Amino acid sequence: MAGIASNGNTIGALRSLEGKVAWVTGAGTGIGQAGAVCLARAGMEVVLSGRRKEKLAETEDMIRGLGKAPIIEELDVADADQVAAVAAKIEERFSRLDVAVFSAGINVKNRSWGEVDTEGWDSVVDIDLNGAFYCCRSVLPIMRRQKEGLIINVSSLAGVRVSKMTGPAYTAAKHGMVAMNESINMEEAVNGIRACALCPGEVATPILDNRPVKVTDEEKAVMLQGEDLGETILFLAQLDTRVCVNQLVISPTANRMYTAGVT
């Protein structure tokens, strides 16, 4: 519950996002889609990026149903030039960027040390780590100029804990993202920029379809859902600019890493 400080300022109130600008990558499905919808519902102007236009159109329809008009910018985050071009368009159109949610990520089916090849490794690292770097690098100049900004890097529980399930490429890329995220806070705090490494456990999103072992509907039902992460992203965005959540680990109550369902 919010209170009033002696100087008259509100204590504990979440800030309004009305009219502020967000950019979400991986916005066509899963966590990115849920985050984009929640931010739009809170009144933000949202830019949707991803590789598949038809999936972005689905997210666009969801947001239009809320009475908002999002902007679609198709993007392969593994292409540094494309990333820079989209960031430039956002600055030209809005002259600012308040929240950046970098959720683009993949994994490969053949992921264990006995199966992964260089092509699979490169594809995961290029999108999950290099792509996140390109995106962060592209928005920092905008946020420096406005002396404010929040970056949410969607990592994984695999970014803080090593597991056989995710494979070495994904695990290494997500660990790298977590370290990269903290380096942003170390260098950019003086510019009013905050970065959060959001590290969810198992989430019932389409990326599960690429698991080596099929995930059942019953197992998906007790996992985190996309909307859970959407609400988490919204909460982070609503926190006062003085608050930096450096890293946030969130897992399903029925965490299979704890119950020995996954090793």
Score class of each variant (00 low, 15 high):
254 A>S: 12
124 V>H: 06
195 A>E: 05
214 K>T: 15
16 S>G: 09
58 E>K: 14
233 I>P: 13
163 S>Y: 06
260 A>Q: 13
41 R>L: 05
251 S>T: 09
130 N>K: 14
4 I>F: 14
193 I>T: 08
207 I>N: 03
62 M>C: 10
77 V>F: 09
28 G>N: 03
213 V>A: 07
5 A>C: 08
100 A>M: 04
162 V>F: 15
29 T>P: 15
86 V>L: 12
257 M>N: 05
222 V>I: 14
70 P>S: 11
2 A>W: 08
14 L>C: 15
161 R>F: 15
18 E>G: 12
37 V>R: 03
70 P>W: 01
151 I>A: 03
233 I>G: 02
160 V>L: 01
206 P>M: 05
179 A>M: 07
245 V>W: 12
86 V>R: 05
130 N>T: 11
22 A>Y: 13
46 V>M: 04
57 A>S: 13
246 N>A: 13
48 L>Q: 08
168 P>N: 00
63 I>A: 13
83 V>D: 00
123 S>P: 07
184 I>D: 00
30 G>F: 03
201 G>I: 07
69 A>S: 09
226 G>W: 00
205 T>G: 12
178 V>W: 12
184 I>W: 00
208 L>F: 11
128 D>M: 04
33 Q>V: 03
116 V>R: 03
174 K>A: 01
145 R>I: 02
206 P>C: 08
180 M>Y: 13
164 K>T: 02
102 F>P: 04
156 S>F: 04
40 A>S: 11
157 L>N: 03
27 A>T: 00
104 A>K: 08
11 I>L: 13
223 M>E: 01
95 S>D: 10
105 G>P: 00
51 R>M: 11
96 R>H: 12
56 L>D: 00
109 K>L: 07
260 A>Y: 15
151 I>G: 05
126 D>K: 06
81 D>M: 08
9 N>Q: 10
76 D>W: 08
248 L>M: 13
117 D>K: 08
223 M>F: 15
158 A>N: 10
93 R>C: 07
241 T>M: 06
72 I>H: 00
22 A>F: 15
189 A>Y: 10
260 A>M: 08
4 I>K: 05
122 D>W: 13
47 V>G: 03
28 G>F: 10
216 T>S: 14
180 M>S: 07
168 P>D: 00
22 A>L: 09
20 K>S: 10
150 L>V: 07
225 Q>D: 05
194 R>M: 15
253 T>Q: 10
84 A>I: 04
26 G>Y: 14
240 D>A: 14
129 L>F: 15
206 P>K: 02
73 E>R: 10
247 Q>G: 13
107 N>H: 09
126 D>I: 00
91 E>S: 01
11 I>A: 04
156 S>Y: 12
10 T>V: 04
81 D>R: 08
261 G>K: 04
105 G>E: 02
259 T>Q: 14
3 G>P: 07
214 K>D: 15
216 T>F: 15
110 N>E: 06
49 S>P: 08
103 S>Q: 10
169 A>V: 10
32 G>Y: 09
29 T>Q: 11
10 T>F: 11
72 I>L: 12
212 P>V: 00
206 P>E: 02
